[in-house]
Each structure stands twice: as structure tokens, then as C-alpha cells.
């Protein structure tokens, strides 16, 4: 057990792995930039304006404004999670990129750290793409909502760490479907995204707060975009910081265990 918790030695070489990924991302930018744009429009129209025309307001807030931060938070979660599950798995298993990289001065810790940083960066980029759309619809407040950008990186790092833990233990690419359907999809629905957590039975509220990382990300996001800052922000932030640190450390150690034999 001891080695799962030991803090890995990471060097600044990790950024070289990040650099490689971002170069590939921007080379195929047309493919990569459209999903977040489309996603923002789809959510806004289908749920925001569609369902919103019936719901109108939640807790005194126009429904579309209520879900706007959730759209951002879900995108943060999805982009980092899928990048560091399927994306990282393909690079690790099918492309053998990690093997090629650790034959250079890069260590496996550097490589995985670079992948995590890249997952977080992808979340950040998606939020940067979505923000103007949401701003154009007038459903987020400016300039406070710009803080969603650094928050996206932190939230992205958290989901990247969680994702990489699954990638480190998954026997095949198919079994990565389990966390996607059993964790990510329910989280996107029950984390105070499209309706307040307080509508759920008390027990579920506790579960959502204690165990669902997205709950905390949505909560902070909403404080920024409405805006409605409260002292709770600090608690949510601390929760995210701790969980991010734990999962990133475990992810790197699990990956080391998987790849260094």
C-alpha cells in the first residue's frame, strides 16, 4: 500500500509530454474546436431554452442561467476524463508512446504528469471556447465568469487524475466504459447540474456532496457565473484541491506499477 501514497518525483520534463499533446491538438484544431462549441449550443437550446420555457426559474434564477455553469462544469469533466481514459489508453497501449518516451530522459512519472497536465489543459481550452457562446446569450456574468478559466484547469486536473486511475487498472479499452456510464453519466445528472442538489432526498444530498467531485465544481462555477459568491466557495475549493492531489498521486503510482516491471 505504501507506494500508492508516496509523492512521485516529477521534473519539469513533464511539460514536454504536455507539449507533444498540445501540438497534436492544435494541428487538428478544426476537429477539436467544434465539439465544445456545438455542445454549448445544444445544451443551451435543448435544456436551457426548451425545458427552460416550462421551468422558467429555479431559486429565483432564470433556468438557462442556472444551467449555464453546469454546461461549463460538465465540459470540464468530460474533456479531461475522456482524454485521460481513452486518449491516454490509446497512447499507452496501442501507440506505445509511453514506452518510446521513457527511453529518453523522461521518467514514467514525468510522462503521466504530462498527460494529467494536458487533460487539465484540454478542459481549460474547452471552457475558453464555450465562454463566448454563453456570454453572447447573456447567461453568464462578466468579468467574474472569466475565473472559470483557471477553475477549469483545476477541475480538469481533478478529473484527469480520477480518469488516469481507471486507465492504470483497466484490463482493456472496453472496460473503460464502466466508469463512463456508472460514474460520469450519473454525475452529469445528479451533481446539482440541471436541478439543485436540495431537491434530492437528504441522504443523496450528502452522497453528492461527499463523493461526487462534479458537485463541488458546479457549485463554484455557479457562484462565479451568476454571480453569487459565498464563503462556501472556500470549502468547495479545498475539497477539490485535496481530491485532486490524492488522485493525481495515486494515478502516477498506479501507472508506474503497471508500466515499470
Amino acid at each position: 500500500m505504501q507506494h500508492f501514497w508516496s509523492v512521485p518525483r516529477i521534473t519539469r520534463r513533464a511539460w514536454k509530454v504536455w507539449h507533444r499533446n498540445i501540438v497534436v491538438f492544435f494541428r487538428t484544431w478544426k476537429v477539436n474546436f467544434f465539439p465544445p462549441l456545438i455542445e454549448a449550443f445544444l445544451y443551451l437550446f435543448a435544456i436551457g431554452l426548451g425545458i427552460g420555457s416550462y421551468v422558467r426559474e429555479i431559486e429565483g434564477i432564470p433556468y438557462v442561467n442556472f444551467i449555464a455553469p453546469a454546461i461549463l462544469a460538465i465540459s470540464v469533466m468530460n474533456s479531461a476524463f475522456f482524454e485521460c481514459t481513452y486518449g491516454s489508453y490509446v497512447r499507452m497501449y496501442y501507440q506505445k508512446s509511453f514506452d518510446a518516451m521513457i527511453a529518453t530522459p523522461l521518467s514514467i512519472e514525468d510522462v503521466i504528469a504530462g498527460e494529467l497536465l494536458w487533460g487539465a489543459t484540454r478542459s481549460l481550452l474547452y471552457v475558453i471556447i464555450m465562454l463566448p457562446v454563453l456570454a453572447a446569450f447573456g447567461v453568464i456574468s462578466l468579468p467574474l465568469s472569466l475565473l472559470a478559466i483557471p477553475l477549469a484547469f483545476l477541475g480538469g486536473l481533478m478529473f484527469a487524475g480520477i480518469a488516469m486511475c481507471f486507465t492504470a487498472v483497466t484490463p482493456s479499452i472496453d472496460t473503460l466504459n464502466y466508469p463512463s456510464f456508472l460514474l460520469i453519466t450519473p454525475m452529469a445528472l445528479f451533481s446539482g447540474t440541471f436541478f439543485p442538489v436540495t431537491l434530492m432526498p437528504v441522504l443523496f444530498q450528502y452522497i453528492a456532496l461527499a463523493l461526487l467531485p462534479l458537485t463541488h465544481l458546479v457549485a463554484i462555477m455557479r457562484m462565479l457565473t451568476l454571480p453569487a459568491l459565498t464563503g462556501m466557495l472556500v470549502l468547495h475549493l479545498i475539497w477539490i484541491l485535496i481530491v485532486t492531489a490524492i488522485f493525481c498521486i495515486i494515478a502516477i503510482n498506479l501507472m508506474r506499477k503497471r508500466l515499470i516491471v
Partner: peptide, 26 residues
């Protein structure tokens, strides 16, 4: 190192593979 398994980077061209790899060596 020339490994037994071919692990070139499929996201890059021939030149891109060499250039990207150089970066790992600073």
C-alpha cells in the same frame, strides 16, 4: 534505443517523429 516493438508516434510525420523526439532530449 531501438526497441523490438515499433513505437513510432502515429500522430506525426517522419520528420515530426524525429523532431518531437529531439525535444525529449532537450
Amino acid at each position: 534505443v531501438v526497441p523490438q516493438e515499433t513505437n513510432l508516434d502515429p500522430d506525426f510525420t517522419c520528420y515530426g517523429n524525429l523532431f518531437t523526439y529531439s525535444r525529449y532530449f532537450d
